[in-house]
Amino acid sequence: MSDDGGPVGPRVIVVGVDGSDTSLRAGAYAWGLARRSGARLVLVHVTPVGTLGALTPGGAMVMREAGAQVDAELRARLERIAAEARDVRYEFHAREGAPCTVLSRVADEERADAVVVGASQQAGHRLVGSVAVRLARAGRWPVTVVP
């Protein structure tokens, strides 16, 4: 508890969600943290429109359409959760770009006190670094990685 008796903790929490099991667990963890601390929750879905997709005919469009479908599914799921648990103020942002860059930008724009992401399940990230590792290396906010 703070000196005034209110909860102590982050006031703005940014969480990356992409529909994977680990990102959904990260979202649930961040939701609980926001509820307990009275924080505003900013959920961010990033559609990566990479250079490989742009190299194939219509590749970028396919990636955007897939991203829009995931956005819609995540929004619907979030609305169902929010209808049952009205005690969290939240926003949902859908953006395109590199996940680490977009999450960093949103965290800075929203003046986040904490960033939450799910652990990467891709083996290659052990070598080149996951979004979580790159966010932590940025060193601008505490980063929680949910398994």
Rank of each mutant, 00 (worst) to 15 (best):
M61H: 13
T144C: 03
G27S: 11
L43E: 06
A26V: 10
V49D: 12
A82N: 01
V8Y: 03
W141V: 13
L33Y: 00
R11F: 04
S23W: 06
A138V: 04
R80P: 00
L135R: 05
M1P: 10
L78Y: 01
Q121N: 12
T47F: 03
S23I: 09
G50K: 00
A85G: 00
P48L: 08
R64I: 10
V8F: 10
R89F: 00
V146L: 01
R80S: 12
R134N: 12
M61I: 13
D4P: 02
G129A: 05
R140F: 06
S120N: 09
H45T: 07
A66I: 09
L52A: 15
V70D: 03
A132F: 07
V145R: 14
L43N: 01
P142F: 01
A28C: 01
T144R: 07
E79L: 14
H125D: 15
L55S: 13
V15G: 06
I81P: 00
R11L: 11
G59Q: 02
W141A: 11
G67F: 03
A123M: 13
A76P: 08
T47H: 08
S20W: 10
A107P: 10
E65D: 09
A72D: 13
V44C: 02
G16H: 02
A85Y: 02
V8L: 15
G16P: 02
